[in-house]
């Protein structure tokens, strides 16, 4: 088996300031990788570099494409990269508003990716939109409502449906539970965990919430000041943190 994504020595600088540097890892099919760290630690910069939203200054991001095998997504042409990002990749934004078209109905939002890859049969598009709304626990009667009439949790679930409808293999998530209250968070995490299992998704999830990675992630990467300071299995890192910063992070979690 070969890794789905191989990241080699990624560096992104903002002038003299380091965004992230020296990041290398492999992501295997079906694996969920959590990236944790405080605000400004470079985790979102890293995710943007991996997803092709930012051009890194150095390094390789090699993705195992369906047709051509492993390809460096940084040097591939923009049309190819954009094609990847609407077929095999998905990106779940922290704010659903960034990932949804607020002026388009829920069904249109889910159907957009299908139409973008050439679906031209209204009935079939609507059927899969309806199916996906059901899978993310949104009442199918809301298919023609605009996301602006949805609650925050529903918007986030709609964003997930919209991303997963083309059956991607790699999902990038940027703080998917940020800004949601705890009960809604728990429901969303449950849903995500089910989808990841059922579809065999590989996921890179960025968060500052250790509870989220404890539930979802198989493996953990801890970042500080743009560098990876510790990696390992999630339970191992959280139960027996080695690096001083990870120890601080784990001990800072509020207990109820």
């Amino acid at each position: 088996m070969s890794p789905l994504l191989s990241v080699r020595d990624i560096e992104k600088r903002y002038g003299a300031h380091i965004g992230c540097t020296g990041v290398s890892f492999d992501l295997w099919p079906g694996e969920v990788l959590g990236i944790v760290g405080e605000s400004g630690s470079g985790k979102s910069t890293l995710l943007s570099c991996l997803a092709g939203h930012l051009a890194p200054d150095r390094g390789e991001v090699i993705f195992d494409t369906r047709t051509d095998g492993p390809r460096d997504t940084i040097t591939m042409s923009e049309p190819e990269r954009r094609m990847l990002s609407r077929t095999d990749w998905a990106f779940v934004h922290q704010h659903a508003r960034d990932g949804l078209r607020m002026g388009v109905s829920a069904g249109g939002n889910v159907g957009e990716r299908l139409m973008a890859v050439g679906a031209r049969h209204y009935g079939e598009i609507r059927e899969s939109a309806s199916d996906w709304l059901g899978r993310v626990e949104i009442d199918e009667g809301r298919i023609d409502d605009r996301p602006s009439t949805f609650s925050g949790g529903m918007q986030q679930r709609l964003q997930i449906a919209r991303n997963l409808v083309t059956g991607p293999r790699l999902v990038f998530m940027d703080e998917p539970t940020g800004g949601l209250d705890v009960s809604v968070q728990a429901r969303l995490l449950d849903l995500l965990r089910g989808l990841v299992r059922d579809m065999g998704l590989s996921v890179i999830i960025v968060t500052h919430d250790l509870a989220v990675v404890r539930l979802l992630a198989d493996r953990l990467m801890v970042m500080k000041s743009g560098r990876v300071v510790e990696t390992g299995l999630t339970d191992q890192v959280l139960d027996d943190p080695q690096h001083a910063y990870t120890q601080l992070l784990v001990s800072s979690v509020l207990q109820v």
Partner: peptide, 9 residues
């Protein structure tokens, strides 16, 4: 694809 989203709507 987006053009068809308008027709879908």
């Amino acid at each position: 694809g987006l053009m068809h989203v308008k027709l879908y709507e």
